[in-house]
């Protein structure tokens, strides 16, 4: 059997890991993460079904009451939900890292001559691919139930891009949780605990103008409100400068604070 294939062995041990090697490692790890999604389709539910269920529930059950007409409410709600899709994707990075740590797969990777960051980047790229599916499905579904793209395809693409940028900044928080907490359920649980109030205490579902003063103050400084407003204006037309700038500032600020912590934690744990 020893002649069937040749393997770069010890004589190449001193070879540096070059850029093409890193890219190949990231490619192989991304492929692995995509295959995991394929092998466990239920993991798509969070990314695909939740926005659709929220859309159906809110548009048809509460929509008339909130906005007067369902048509108007669709234009209000769906852009906001689209915006938070990036956030849900980010959370999956943490649960995935956590699972790899707990099952010993991370140990296997760490005994291989690859850069540690490749494992992480492979996860992020795979989530971005999952996101492509999630955004496509949500947009297609919204068009079917009658969402109007008032600014055309450019507006939607801009909203998706903004959603991804904001999601990227949350990857670091997700990583911190995934590397710190005991199990994937805990990561998901804590994530929900933080995200739920943020989601509902924002302008995603209802205009803050009807809320009591203290809640209105909260929604004003809630980045998810900025994100929802930005996506809404990008898709429906309207002033985008303030909200988009705020989302970008938030993304930079969150990254600046949490990325060093997450990287330090990653180095310590792996």
């Amino acid at each position: 059997m020893s002649t069937a294939t040749t393997v770069p062995g010890a004589e190449f041990a001193d070879r540096r890991i070059g850029l093409t090697d890193h890219l190949r490692h990231i490619g192989a790890l991304t492929r692995r993460n995509l295959m995991r999604i394929k092998a466990d389709p239920e993991s798509m539910f969070d990314a695909l079904l939740m926005p659709i269920i929220f859309t159906l529930l809110f548009v048809y059950v509460f929509g008339g009451a909130i906005s007067g007409t369902q048509g108007a409410y669709k234009q209000w709600l769906i852009p906001g939900l689209l915006g938070t899709t990036g956030m849900n994707l980010a959370m999956a990075v943490g649960t995935g890292l956590n699972a790899d740590l707990k099952t010993g797969v991370m140990d296997r990777f760490r005994t291989l001559p690859i850069g540690r960051a490749s494992v992480l980047i492979g996860k992020v790229v795979a989530e971005a691919c999952r996101g492509l599916v999630a955004y496509t499905v949500l947009i297609a579904f919204s068009l079917v139930i009658g969402l109007q793209l008032k600014t055309g395809i450019t507006g939607v693409l801009a909203a998706v891009a903004l959603s991804l940028v904001f999601g990227m900044s949350l990857v670091w928080i997700s990583m911190l949780l995934g590397l710190t907490l005991d199990n994937a359920q805990a990561v998901q649980g804590i994530g929900m605990l933080v995200l739920m109030p943020l989601q509902f205490g924002s302008s995603i579902f209802a205009p803050p103008s009807t809320m009591p003063g203290w809640l209105r103050a909260f929604t004003r400084y809630n980045p998810l409100s900025n994100l929802a407003d930005a996506c809404r204006h990008l898709i429906n037309g309207g002033p985008v400068a303030h909200s988009v700038t705020m989302v970008l500032l938030w993304s930079v600020a969150i990254t600046a604070v949490t990325a060093p912590l997450a990287v330090a934690r990653f180095r310590k744990v792996t």
Binding site: P8, G27, R36, I114
Partner: peptide, 27 residues
């Protein structure tokens, strides 16, 4: 390394697991 800790990916098939490691070893 084979052990109680270093492990294989349970969701991947046997051949995919080995292929992944081969690629990470620059094959």
């Amino acid at each position: 390394l084979t052990g109680q800790y270093a492990s294989v990916d349970e969701l991947l098939s046997g051949s995919e697991n080995l292929y992944l490691i081969g690629r990470l070893l620059d094959l």
